[in-house]
Design a protein around this nucleic acid. Structure first.
Lengths: 252, 252
DNA sequence: AAGTGGTCTAGACCACTGC
DNA sequence: CAGTGGTCTAGACCACTTA
């Protein structure tokens, strides 16, 4: 047998990645255990651990202690349509998120985990055009698909708008909070979103049940009424591997 | 002295993170070297290396071999305005990317790294409403800020539209390819973008000079003319830590 | 009880930086 | 040449899963 060149963790990870992409290891199947890698490649356990770490960081595999390292099944994507806040959805009373997920034969659920009056971080006040330190209503939501969290949303609404209205109760009525704004006499005219990609904080990774190494989409949503008054700032944190945001852009 | 509880790499990284966030280590300053960590925390070199690895994966610090581990300066964000493809920009002849970057006092540069006719992957044909296997023109671009790459773009255009036109040369004229489409008699009416977050492939991480652990924004852009004919599919890969995409959403 | 991933130690060597 | 991050070895122990 010819003396094999000693491979490093990067090269071994690349080999495995190619085997996965070529279909040699199918989605859901188990990779060679770290003990096997140690023997077949003549490496130490720390290196073997690094190999699986590299594969995990690309989202290609996931590990379960005591069980093994598994090739990830292609997760079904949740598409957030560009008209997801359009009036016809509010009037139909069925949110696009729910429609999309149920069309995939999966169960959608939105849970309002907290509603409170509080002084938010100052960027919230800035976006809401409120003096720093002024109280707002915060609505904290978690979106579930098949009972696992895929999306965390914090919505901040000026107290002057939300105080003692349906916006301070868990279910503000059919059509959600945007329908409630219109019930209160605000006509929504404009919504902006700012999208970034980043790594989750440890608490977010836990809440989203995401293997560390999965990035998140960080979306800041601001809506305005007919007077250009900001109605709400909503901060979305979505699992990057399960969500697609779609937008339409002006050409004129 | 009370016997210190032996800390693991996570806990040590958390301590350092807090010191950075509290300002004890300022942006640009150097963290204790791994040798110092080994001594002060009584850990091994592998653990010390893991500590810095954890901090790097959150984008908080970056390392330079032979020099040290440095607290990242707050990177200035490049905002991609929601009207970035609007006609007035094409007519002004100065792209929003360039305007944004130069307004920050930094140098913008776009390099066309390749133009070729080829048979693309099949998702390209699908989006362009072309038969699988049909040739297209691919334009490969890299966007630089202060001479480091922040954005990779592959634009695919049906051969029937681009063949023997300015779209096959490096500089299709002022206003870029979208102005060129209109010169050729296509009026752009609609543009869609699909946004995802993911980890970069190794070659992308290299090209973007991103420390592995920094996620990217993956954007698919499709534009249509007055007949709903797809004009181009562009695939953007942006550094997640340096770019913000902004969008306006319909409320009606 | 056997096998798994996860984490760690105590060293070693390498390529690189900066004086 | 001393100091740096990066990678590795050859073990060890732990918590967990599966049977």
């Amino acid at each position: 047998m010819p003396a094999m060149k000693r491979l490093n963790s990067r090269e071994i990870a690349d080999q495995l990645r190619k085997k996965i992409e070529s279909g040699e290891y199918l989605p859901g199947s188990v990779l060679p255990s770290e003990r096997e890698l140690i023997e077949t490649y003549g490496i130490s356990s720390a290196t073997a651990s690094k190999v699986t770490g590299l594969l995990k960081s690309t989202g290609l595999v996931e590990s379960q202690v005591g069980r093994g390292v598994f090739v990830r099944r292609r997760t079904q994507l949740i598409r957030h349509a560009h008209d997801r806040y359009a009036r016809h959805w509010r009037e139909a009373g069925k949110a696009p998120f729910r429609a999309e997920v149920e069309a995939q034969g999966r169960a959608a659920r939105v849970e309002v985990t907290d509603i409170a009056r509080l002084v938010p971080e100052k960027w919230v006040n800035e976006r809401l055009a409120l003096p720093i330190g002024q109280e707002v209503v915060r609505r904290e939501n978690t979106y579930f698909v098949d009972d696992h969290a895929v999306q965390i949303v914090n919505t901040y609404i000026p107290l002057s708008i939300a105080a003692d209205t349906p916006l301070e109760v868990a279910v503000p009525g059919p059509g959600g909070i945007y329908a409630a704004f219109e019930q209160l006499g605000h006509r929504l005219t404009r919504m902006l979103e700012e999208v970034q990609a980043r790594m989750p904080r440890t608490d977010e990774a836990q809440r989203l049940n995401a293997s560390p190494g999965t990035p998140v989409l960080d979306v800041l949503h601001i809506s305005y009424d007919q007077d250009e008054t900001p109605m709400d700032v909503s901060h979305f944190v979505l699992r990057g591997d399960e969500n697609v945001l779609t937008y339409e852009l002006p050409t004129d």
